[in-house]
């Protein structure tokens, strides 16, 4: 369910704005979302900043998205393997769906997510574009 809240968005600034994630201090595995425990058994994690480059693992096109995204028309969403090893789902912009492929190199950009109506806050975060 799509929840439109400035506060929820504000709590996610670190990962949505900066692509900050976590690295297991024992085995070095990297995660975009925080984990209670790594499969290696460690519960210790260090905060890291991802470089923002990666490859598309899978992708699709959304023809009828949430109302807040209606200004964008149809848009592309992909699962991306970041260069450091973590996996993320994000919008791919500045490209045509037909030009995307599994393995396309992408890089992170800072873009508008949506606006909360005419008077509400503007929400920003990380999307990806094909590397050029």
């Amino acid at each position: 369910m799509f929840r439109d809240s400035s506060i929820i968005r504000w709590r996610a600034y670190k990962d949505r704005y900066m692509l900050e994630g976590y690295e297991c201090s024992s085995c070095g595995k990297k995660y975009f979302e925080s984990k209670g425990m790594c499969p290696c058994g460690s519960i210790e994690f260090n905060e890291i900043e991802f470089s923002g480059v990666g490859k598309i693992v899978s992708f699709t096109q959304i023809h009828s998205g949430p109302e807040a995204f209606s200004e964008q028309g149809k848009y592309c969403v992909a699962i991306i393997d970041l260069a450091e090893g973590a996996r993320i789902t994000a919008q791919i912009v500045d490209c045509k769906f037909e030009d995307l492929a599994i393995g396309t190199n992408v890089e992170a950009v800072f873009r508008k997510f949506y606006k909360s109506g005419e008077k509400g806050a503007i929400h920003y975060g990380t999307k990806f574009v094909p590397k050029f």
């Binding site: 200004e71 964008q72 500045d94 950009v109 800072f110 873009r111 508008k112 997510f113 503007i122 920003y124």
Partner: peptide, 13 residues
């Protein structure tokens, strides 16, 4: 600008 670009996103880039 792209549909999701404004002064803030341009400045950040």
């Amino acid at each position: 600008p792209g549909k999701d670009e404004d002064t803030i996103t341009i400045a950040t880039h």
